[in-house]
Amino acid sequence: MGRSVWSHMKGSVRAMADMVSSGTIANYFRSSRRYGLFFLFTYMLLAVFWGLAAAAGFLVYQWLAAFGTVFATVAGLAVTLAGGLLLMRWPGRRFRLKQSLDLAEFSVDFVRGRHPEVEARIRAFADRLRAVEAEAAAQGIDEIIVAGHSLGAMLAVSAVAAALAADPAFGTRARVRILTLGSTTAKFALHPAGGRFREAAERVAAAEQIGWVEVQSRDDIVSFYKVNPVTLGPVSFAPVLLPPGEYSLKPLIRHVEIRQMISPAIYRRHWFDVMRLHCQCFLAGDIRSTHDFYAYVCGPLSFDVLASHTNSLRAYLLPDGTLRPLVYDAAGCILPLPESETAA
Rank of each mutant, 00 (worst) to 15 (best):
A56R: 04
P192N: 10
R112P: 05
R218A: 10
Y316G: 10
Q99E: 15
A295V: 05
L326V: 05
Y296G: 11
S7T: 06
L249P: 08
L103S: 08
G51T: 04
L252G: 04
G321E: 05
E246R: 01
V108Y: 15
R3P: 02
E202C: 11
P319Y: 01
C281S: 11
I262L: 13
A66W: 06
S21G: 09
G195S: 13
I141L: 11
R96M: 03
A163S: 09
L151A: 07
L323M: 08
I210F: 15
W63Q: 11
V111D: 08
S100I: 00
I178W: 03
A201I: 04
F293A: 00
S308C: 10
R269N: 13
R123W: 04
R269G: 13
R114I: 00
F67V: 10
A147P: 12
L179N: 07
R259L: 15
L242W: 06
L46F: 14
V146F: 12
S340D: 14
Y28I: 10
V176A: 06
A56V: 07
V215L: 10
D219S: 10
H270L: 12
P325R: 11
P116M: 04
V160Y: 12
L313D: 03
P244Q: 09
L81G: 05
A206N: 03
R34K: 14
A120L: 02
D329N: 07
A166C: 07
V327F: 04
L37N: 00
R288E: 11
S223L: 02
S158D: 14
L37D: 05
L85P: 14
G76T: 09
A136M: 00
G182W: 02
A72G: 06
A315K: 05
V60W: 00
R96C: 01
H149K: 08
R93C: 03
A166R: 11
D219A: 09
L77V: 12
H115E: 01
S263R: 00
M261W: 02
H149M: 01
R254T: 05
P300L: 03
M44W: 14
L87D: 06
Y316D: 06
I262F: 02
P239T: 02
M88G: 13
R89Y: 15
A161Q: 05
Y294H: 12
R196F: 12
A124R: 13
G140N: 14
S100C: 05
R218K: 07
L283E: 15
L317K: 03
P234N: 06
V222K: 10
L190H: 09
F41L: 13
P300V: 01
A331E: 15
D292F: 06
R89S: 12
T73V: 11
V146A: 06
A26N: 03
R123I: 01
V274Y: 03
G36K: 01
